[in-house]
Nucleic acid binder design. Structure first.
Length: 489
DNA sequence: TGTTGTTGTGAATCCCTTGC
DNA sequence: GCAAGGGATTCACAACAACA
């Protein structure tokens, strides 16, 4: 990479990484060598002989640590000045930030668009509950707090003065995943050419797949086949189960995901939990900005672990299904009132066990959810039946409808015409054309009467001229340019 | 309307590989 | 072991969205 490119003001990194410190030392030597080469009047890529290299190495050894440090990772020779690490790494930014690529919202939005057939396929591989998640927003401050309180070495978390042990069992319970099966291993076959080909076949760059692309592919998949299942699992891993700081998912998962029937045999709860432990361990050790792993799990676990005043959710369901954005927000407000996330007044449950506790509000929500989830299925079934009927009875119905419409129109016109005739004779004996009379009470009647019927009669005639109406096209525009409104379901 | 969360992107840095 | 390149990872930031 070019030194000029590195000299940009954008993209400053935290300067407190141990890994980075050692790297800076190594890069400093390279930069020192570059400068020496420049001073020798040699081109940037010109080779140095052994004597010249030894000479430079001796000069480097004579420098003290402070001087060495001035040859940081970035080097701009264009101005004759050496830009040290202080020019690149903002050492004053010591306050650790906190962010994550965990994105339940993106996951939820994508799953929402999937067909029932695809949702059934998701159920088959054991990700049905994950796909039904309702809590799409992460409370960053809470997540940061929970990350700080979570000890990955002892697999425990300290909440409101109480230490709770958590494991893959909890992860499975909270996220609605099974905690049995084979261990998910990613360390093997990484360099296999076949894997690279596999990743490329899924639209990746040879090693990784972009989460964004996976989401788009899920919607575009025509069938809920094995290919769809693989893409879905990859998407779930990249958004809610094992998100990293990268906007992509490693292609190593494909080594086993692409084996038909393999997805269901893996222990995803165990993998998700271990991934989170490793992510938090790394976050604490390296003091990086991003946390790898499912922060959604930590957030849901927290809400599921505290005893609160009102029943906001259905405790008989898995937390991933029972907690939604509204109930989460209610809880956050409640906890704030109690003194915050670390308040000793908030009580924590000692043991998690499913109950049959269902509040009235939640019962309503469950009914609503069932209705919402069933509606598309019913609609599809009705549509299919109607379409079948339409094909069979279409021509007969069309002919009958047209005949009836014309008959009806003729009758109405005849009735209106005779009515007007009578009215004219009644009000203005001897006057044939009342429409010419200014401010006549009948004019008003006429606006909504004859002319409209006449218009309709003309339209009916036009329809008659046009011939057969396409009954399969429910959105066929009306002759006057209007269209039918969508029936409410 | 202000605050908070989400997402895409460019750039810096790190790690690994290759050639000499 | 030096020197460099390529790809992956990480970071910061801005724009946008969602929510109270």
């Amino acid at each position: 990479m070019e030194a000029k490119k590195r000299g940009s003001a954008k993209g400053k990194r935290k300067g407190n990484s141990n890994v980075q410190q050692s790297r800076v030392g190594r890069d400093a030597f390279f930069n020192f060598m570059k400068k020496q080469r420049h001073e020798m009047g040699k081109e940037a890529n010109a080779k140095l002989d052994r004597k010249e290299r030894e000479e430079i190495a001796n000069k480097w050894r004579k420098l003290n640590p402070q001087e060495k440090a001035t040859y940081g990772s970035a080097l701009d020779l264009s101005g004759g000045q050496v830009e040290g690490s202080s020019g690149q790494v903002n050492v004053s930014v010591n306050e650790k930030g906190f962010t994550s690529r965990c994105s339940p919202d993106r996951f939820h939005q994508t799953v929402e668009k999937l067909s029932n057939q695809k949702r059934l396929a998701i159920n088959e591989i054991g990700f049905g509950k994950v796909a039904s998640l309702c809590c799409t927003r992460l409370h960053r401050k809470l997540c940061k707090f929970l990350t700080e309180r979570f000890n990955p070495d002892t697999s425990s978390i300290q909440l409101h003065g109480k230490v709770i042990g958590i494991s893959a069992v909890e992860f499975g319970r909270v996220m609605g995943l099974q905690n049995t099966g084979e261990v998910v291993e990613l360390e093997w076959l990484v360099e296999d050419e076949k894997v690279k080909e596999l990743v490329k076949s899924f639209g990746g760059n040879g090693k990784r797949l972009l989460v964004r692309d996976l989401g788009e592919q899920l919607e575009k998949c025509e069938n809920a086949d094995e290919d769809f299942k693989v893409r879905f699992v990859m998407f779930a891993l990249g958004t809610v189960l094992c998100p990293t700081s990268s906007p992509s998912v490693t292609g190593n998962y494909l080594t086993f995901l692409t084996i038909p029937g393999k997805i269901e045999t893996k222990n995803w709860a165990d993998h998700g939990f271990n991934f989170l432990c490793e992510g938090i361990r790394s976050f604490k050790a390296k003091k990086v900005l991003y946390v790898n792993g499912s922060l959604l799990f930590l957030q849901l676990l927290y809400f599921d672990s505290i005893l609160h005043g009102g029943v906001y959710v259905d405790k008989s369901l898995d937390p991933i299904v029972s907690w939604d954005n509204k109930s989460v927000w209610k809880m956050i407000i409640w906890v704030r009132k109690q003194g915050g996330f670390d308040s000793p007044t908030v009580r924590v449950v000692s043991k998690h066990s499913p109950t049959n506790e269902v509040s009235r509000v939640n019962l309503e929500r469950i009914v609503q959810e069932v209705a919402v989830s069933l509606a598309p299925i019913i609609q599809a079934e009705v549509k299919r039946s109607v379409e079948g009927l339409a094909i069979t009875l279409g021509p007969i119905i069309q002919a009958e409808v047209q005949r009836s419409m014309l008959e009806f129109t003729d009758k109405v016109m005849s009735q209106v015409s005779s009515f007007n005739k009578d009215a004219r004779q009644h009000l203005h004996p001897g006057h044939e054309d009342v429409n010419q009379t200014k401010d006549s009470p009948l004019k008003e009647r006429d606006q909504g009467g004859e002319s409209v019927v006449k218009k309709k009669g003309e339209e009916a005639s036009k329809l008659k001229e046009k011939g057969v109406v396409d009954v399969n096209n429910t959105w066929m525009p009306l002759p006057d340019g209007q269209s039918f409104s969508e029936p409410e379901v």
